[in-house]
Design a protein around this nucleic acid. Structure first.
Length: 578
RNA sequence: UGUCCCAUAGUAUAAGGGUAGUACAACAGAUUUUGAUUCUGUCUGUCGAGGUUCGAAUCCUCGUGGGACAACCA
């Protein structure tokens, strides 16, 4: 049982630190900025940060990086909390960078006092010029020479609201010629007379990311501060502040952000899709956000499994969306309730089916004894549910069944009939036989067409001895198709989703990423559902047999059911016949 | 013409000087009252050139390719 699961590079760092006795327990944090909804990229970071402390002991804080009052909103805070909880993780402390504004202010005063920070009156244009470029060094300006006393007074006045937005900033005094541009006297505080979602109007100066993030990590004794690759150049500054402030030395480690094929994964771009109405909102089921996946019927297990399987590294990447789909199918196959639904109906009449009495009085709804079907023609068939799912089986270890009404008029899937079938087609065709799932074998005798030559109806005969479960007919058929009894059918709206973009990596294509949006990413149809689905439950995954996994949408109302297709089934026939 | 990061099958990720492995995808077959599931098999890979070494995906050098860095964003 010594299954050596290989570690990712961050786990290796953690194990080394633990082994060296550097820490007793590790502390991580998940630090979203509340300016958008969480997406699959965040899910990776969440699984990493929370997964690490779960595995190695310690805890993870949820910390909102709310240092920019003009873009951040409480709505986002709530959605982020929902998403993290739904993914199955618990944070130790709910914290905000804004909780530390007083401490941060004190830190700034300390740096000023040490001669390591100064107030600069330059305009942003001038500052940008003085900063140089990646290949040319920057130059000092006159304000850099200000005395500690003057800096202290000016910074105090900035805080007191004496100056307008943009009039002055506080900068660290490091080195204007440093090769790392972030070390060329980075701005620590800017003036923004803006209302903050938590501190209200208490402050008119706000720290920037670099003068908030590392310090917040340090205040919380974060041992491993994990972020994405683009923060690599920030690490030097991160360490500089910690060193000069003489505070707890949190360490920053960087991994490559997770991208997904056929979608975009930046909050800026996702916000555009929302604002410009390409989607109905952040949780439109076509979005790669966690709330969208939840609404669509993905499970937290599947998403965690996906994050686990792709792993993490420092190489830029685009993970294959089909792996995510594999993960969700794998989970749903085990838990989803099986039902029959016809998406695109073709009516068939079973000409020799005369039974007008019930041979079986079992009810077919979810436990309620209803006489709903008793007024109609047919019989009730017991059809087994999900054979994969232990919890759906009864105590006698028998597979749970449900009653499904059968009659002489049925809907089958239009694509399950072909007048001129190709070679290995084993569904219905003129003179051909097929099994109706859980019912009888039927034979197609006659094809009825309208004036235009379209097939409108099929006349079939059934084999009475072929009753599912006790078939004595001796007939073997290759195909089994699903069906719904016409007089008993109910209807529901089905929302079928396809990938949001036509290309694998929209961000790397020429021009505006929005030109690659797939115009057919949403298809809405009305389907015929077996009657038990009238009582479909929310938060429950259904497999519409042979058609895919479906999940009740939040737009669903009693009498007006709306299902999202979570993901289709693998379809090797469709794949091979193309 | 700077500094930093990265480079393993189509994709993602292992192998930490000693047989290049796993998953997804693709393909082929078996089973199947879901053309699903399950099972079996096949295919494809170390960016290049040098060097160190008995031995290099791994260490070194130089290339090549990709990415990051000049927001009072995070």
């Amino acid at each position: 049982m010594t299954e050596e699961k290989s570690l990712n590079f961050i786990e290796e760092i953690v194990e080394d630190d633990l082994e060296a006795g550097k820490y007793k327990n590790i502390v991580t944090r998940f630090p979203p900025e509340p300016n958008g909804y969480l997406h699959m990229g965040h899910a990776t970071a969440i699984c990493l940060n929370f997964g690490l402390t779960k595995k190695y002991g310690g805890y993870t804080n949820l910390r909102f990086d709310d240092t920019n009052p003009t873009t951040e909103e409480t709505e986002y805070v709530e959605s982020i909390k929902d998403d993290v909880r739904w993914l199955g993780f618990e944070w130790k402390n709910e914290l905000y960078a804004s909780d530390y504004f007083d401490t941060l202010y004190g830190y700034a005063v300390k740096l000023i006092s040490k001669g390591l920070a100064y107030v600069d009156d330059s305009s942003s244009d001038v500052m940008a010029k003085e900063k140089g470029t990646p290949t040319e060094p920057g130059v000092d300006n006159e304000f850099r020479k200000r005395t500690v006393e003057e800096n202290l007074r000016l910074f105090e006045e900035m805080k007191a609201g004496k100056y307008k937005d943009g009039e002055r900033v506080l900068r660290a005094k490091i080195d204007m010629t440093h090769v790392n541009m972030l070390m060329r006297d980075p701005i620590m505080y800017r003036i923004k007379h803006a209302h903050h979602h938590r501190t209200g109007d208490k402050w008119c100066i706000y720290p920037l990311y670099d003068f908030a993030h590392g310090q917040s990590d340090s205040i919380e004794n974060i041992t491993h501060s994990i972020c994405t690759l683009e923060f690599i150049p920030h690490r030097e500054l991160y360490n500089w502040y910690i060193e000069k402030l003489e505070i707890f030395p949190s360490k920053q480690y960087e991994f490559a952000r997770r991208n997904l094929s056929f979608t975009v994964m930046s909050k800026r771009k996702l916000l555009q899709l929302v604002n410009e109405k390409f989607v109905s909102g952040w949780d439109d089921p076509r979005m790669p956000t966690i709330s969208a996946y939840r609404r669509r019927g993905y499970t937290a297990e599947a998403i965690r499994d996906f994050c686990e399987r792709v792993g993490i590294a420092k190489r830029e990447n685009v993970a294959d969306i089909s792996l995510l789909e594999f993960c969700v199918r794998e989970h749903l196959n085990k838990i989803a309730v099986r039902r029959m639904v016809v998406l695109n109906p073709l009516k068939i009449v079973i000409t020799n089916y005369k039974d007008t009495n019930y041979t079986n009085k079992a009810n077919y709804t979810n436990g309620e004894n209803t006489n709903y079907t008793n007024k109609k023609n047919g019989e009730i068939l017991e059809i087994e549910d999900n054979v994969e799912n232990d919890t759906l089986q009864t105590t006698n270890n028998k597979i749970q069944t449900r009653g499904v009404p059968f009659s002489n008029e049925l809907y089958i899937e239009r694509e399950d009939f072909m007048e001129n079938p190709p070679k290995k087609y084993f569904r219905l065709f003129p003179g051909g036989m097929v099994r109706l799932k859980g019912a009888y074998i039927i034979k197609c005798d006659e094809v009825i067409k309208d004036a235009a030559g379209n097939v409108t109806e099929l006349h079939c005969t059934y084999i009475p001895e072929s009753h599912s479960g006790h078939d004595s007919s001796g007939i073997k058929v290759k195909g089994t198709i699903h069906w719904v009894s016409v007089p008993h059918a109910e209807t529901a709206e089905l929302r079928l989703y396809d990938r949001l973009f036509k290309v694998e990596d929209p961000s790397s294509e020429e021009g505006d990423f929005k030109t690659y949006i797939n115009p057919d990413s949403l298809q809405i149809i009305t389907a015929y559902i077996e009657p038990s689905l009238k009582d479909a439950l929310p938060n429950t995954s259904y497999q519409f047999i042979r058609k895919g996994y479906f999940y009740l949408d939040k737009d669903s109302k009693p009498g007006k059911l709306v299902f999202n297709r979570t993901v289709g089934l693998r379809d090797s026939w469709a794949a091979s016949s193309k």
